[in-house]
Structure formats: C-alpha cells, structure tokens
C-alpha cells in the first residue's frame, strides 16, 4: 500500500517533468533576439525559486527547532538546505550560460547575483555547521545560524542594490515582456520544480530517518 502511494507520486513527478520539458522545448516560442539560449531562463528562474523556498523552510524550521527541539524538524531543515544548495548552484551555473550571449559577460555585480552567491555561501556554512548532525549543540547552533542568515538576506540585497545604484547600471533585466506562452512555460516549470523539491525532500528525509534509527540501534547495542 505504501509502496503504491510512492509509485503514484513518482509517476506524477515524471509526468510533470516530462511535460515541463515539452512545454519549454516545443510549446514555448524561441525568443526573437536571444534565440534558443533563452530557454535556460526557465530552469534558471525555477532553480532560484526553489533555492529561496528551501531557505524559507530552513528559517521556519530553525525557529520551530529552538522552540520545540524536535529532531524531525531539524531533519526537514537539513534536507531543505541540502536541496537548496544544489538548486542555488544550478541557478549560479545557468545564469552565466544565459548571461554571456546576452550581456556579453559571465558575471556582473547585480544585486540579485550577489545575493544569490551570498545565499550559496550561507547554505554551505549552514550545512557545515550541522556537520552530519548527530550532536545536539550543532543542531541548536545551526538553527540560530539559520535565523540570522535569513535576516541577513535582505541586508545583502539592499546593500548590493544601493552600491550599484551609485554606479551607472550597466545591465538590467527589468521590464522583460513575456509572451503568454513563455509565461505558461515559466509557471509550468516552477510547478514541476516544486514537485521535484518535495520529492527530493521526502527521499532525503527518509534517508535521514533511517540513519537516525541505525544510530539509535547501535547505541542501544553498545550500552
């Protein structure tokens, strides 16, 4: 019975992702000036979205952990941070692929780019602080860090924006008018990515739970 439910979930996910690839590849039109390379945009935005979502989850779980001290909550935070760092990496990697042909530069100190990079650093630090997460104090510290880091995100964004606004703004991706079909493709891929996030989080969580169980069993054998 349980297996069946998992299979159905997997099936839905597969349909969503394959459908999404179809929509991006075939349904959405090729952008006139940017050409095919613009298609990376759907992956780029969706990964960034998941990165942000995961970060919010880490933040909420951190507060909840300090309050309730439940290991389950911490596991959700860990799983989320790990998935978040993968998707933020995707964002950071797909960004230049898209940006180079369009902006003619791999990197610019745009506030969004800067914030995303700092986000990546903070995720990495968070995961390092959890350190596999057997020790109670590491979970607690990570929760404190998760809260501070979240509060730091808007600070990074605004400082980067202010600093750029003093210099002339070289590039801006504002005011991009999207074809309705492109919008559909974007929403479709955000939905597909969110489903992927949920699926990955569930898988990671079950691994973490199993590991916890193995540890408990071993400890009980020793003592």
């Amino acid at each position: 019975m349980r297996l069946d439910r998992r299979m159905i979930g997997l099936l839905i996910l597969t349909v969503l992702i394959v459908g999404n690839i179809y929509i991006i590849g075939i349904y959405a039109p090729i952008e006139r000036t940017m050409g095919v390379v613009q298609k990376v945009f759907y992956f780029h935005i969706s990964s960034a979205w998941i990165g942000m979502l995961a970060f919010v989850v880490v933040f909420l779980c951190s507060i909840l952990y300090l309050w309730r001290r439940s290991e389950e909550v911490n596991q959700v935070a860990v799983a989320s941070a790990e998935i978040g760092v993968v998707f933020i990496s995707c964002t950071l990697l797909t960004g230049p692929i898209w940006a180079y042909p369009i902006w003619n530069t791999w990197w610019t100190w745009d506030p969004r780019l800067t914030t995303t990079l700092v986000l990546w650093f903070m995720y990495a630090a968070y995961i390092a602080l959890q350190g596999g997460g057997a020790a109670e104090n590491r979970r607690r510290f990570a929760a404190v860090y998760g809260i501070i880091a979240f509060i730091n995100v808007p600070l990074v964004f605004f400082s980067a924006r202010w600093w750029r606004s003093i210099h002339p703004v070289i590039v801006s991706s504002e005011g991009m008018n999207l074809d309705p079909r492109m919008k559909t493709a974007l929403y479709a891929s955000i939905i597909a990515f969110s489903a992927l996030y949920v699926h990955l989080a569930k898988m990671r969580l079950s691994v973490l739970r199993l590991r916890k169980r193995v540890e408990t069993l071993r400890e009980n054998l020793v003592y």
């Binding site: 800067t114 700092v118 650093f121 903070m122 990495a124 630090a125 390092a128 602080l129 350190g131 104090n137 590491r138 510290f141 404190v144 860090y145 501070i148 880091a149 730091n152 600070l155 990074v156 605004f158 400082s159 980067a160 600093w163």
Partner: peptide, 26 residues
C-alpha cells in the same frame, strides 16, 4: 561562542564572512 564549543572546528570564517558582506559593502 558557537564554534568554540565544537571540537577542533575551523568553521568560524565560513560562518562569519557571508553574514558580514552587507557590512563590508557599507
């Protein structure tokens, strides 16, 4: 206060610098 409680941990710089970036810019 956190890192000092972790066994031989060299985590401080990687925890600290991302948080300090806004201050650094400013």
């Amino acid at each position: 206060a956190m890192t000092v409680q972790l066994p031989n941990s060299r985590l401080l710089p990687i925890l600290m610098f991302p948080l300090l970036i806004p201050l650094f810019i400013a």
